[in-house]
């Protein structure tokens, strides 16, 4: 147990990615992620956030550097929730969730599916097609599909950005509860400062392909928007981050 806590589940070292010789999307990027921690990558559009997720998920290969994974036996390493829920239009919610388990054992899968259907309040929607679901419920199905594979690392690529404020905050709270209860390691990329603070144990500021700053977030858990919104440490950190990102933008201008 001690060994597991001391060993990062993900070690990223000197990661560099340039799709062509003129553009450096990620430049010499290094950080570590520990079991059960949430690291938020905060940055503006085009800062390389999604590229980082694609590299960690193994969708693309880096030009140099390494991504070291310390994997537990029974868990799959990572699964991704994208900004677009990426549901298969021809499958019901239940079958879309089952897509996550196509390459694994069916018995384990059914128990996991039932569990997340309940946790994400999808009971009334399991037989519906994606076209019959609201944006919020589509994203719930996508999150359930990502969780049923029991990933050691959950990669979240701006999954709340297309939702209305009410659906967004509700889903954020529910997902955060699941992450805490199940001790999941999470990398969330976002450009939303409040969302970043809500989820984070640690915030990394990604600008011009480099991590420019790091902030530890020490806020009480479990986190609920009604309490957190007026919490002095939350307000203070939000102001610091706003100032920090604005300062950098002004410098660039």
């Amino acid at each position: 147990m001690i060994k597991e806590h001391n060993l990062p589940c993900l070690e990223i070292s000197k990661l560099t990615y340039f799709p062509d010789s003129k553009v450096n999307v990620l430049n010499n990027l290094s950080f570590e992620l520990y079991k059960g921690k949430v690291t938020v990558i905060l940055g503006s559009n085009g800062s390389g956030k999604t590229t980082l997720i694609n590299l960690i998920a193994g969708f693309i290969r880096p030009n140099s550097g390494s991504i070291k994974i310390n994997q537990n036996g029974n868990e799959s390493f990572s699964s991704v929730v994208f900004q677009d829920p990426v549901l298969l239009d021809w499958k019901s919610s239940y079958d879309n969730i089952m897509v996550g388990l196509l390459s694994s054992s069916k018995n384990v899968g059914n128990q996991m599916v039932e569990k997340y259907i309940e946790m994400l309040q999808l009971d009334q929607h399991i037989n519906k097609l994606p076209k019959q679901l609201s944006g919020g419920f589509k994203q719930r199905v996508a999150i359930a599909r990502a969780l049923v594979v029991n990933p050691q690392l959950l990669l979240l690529d701006e999954p709340f950005s297309a939702l209305d404020v009410y659906s967004k905050e509700k889903l954020q709270e529910e997902l955060y509860d699941i992450v805490c209860k199940e001790n999941k390691s999470v990398i969330l990329v976002t450009h939303d400062i409040s969302e970043a603070i809500f989820f984070a144990d640690n915030i990394l500021i990604l600008e011009n392909g480099k991590i420019q700053d790091s902030f530890n977030v020490e806020l009480p858990k479990p986190r609920k928007w009604t309490k957190l919104r007026n919490f002095p440490a939350f307000i203070k950190l939000r102001e610091v981050l706003r100032k920090r990102l604005n300062v950098r933008r002004n410098e660039n201008e």
Binding site: S79, V80, L88, W90, L102, S103
Partner: peptide, 24 residues
């Protein structure tokens, strides 16, 4: 491309990719 990422992410084999994604 998003479905190709889905296939990669959930490690679907060629047959599963055809039956569940490409054919429909």
């Amino acid at each position: 491309n998003k479905f190709i990422r889905l296939r990669q992410g959930y490690k679907l084999n060629g047959f599963q990719n055809f039956v569940h994604i490409v054919f429909p």
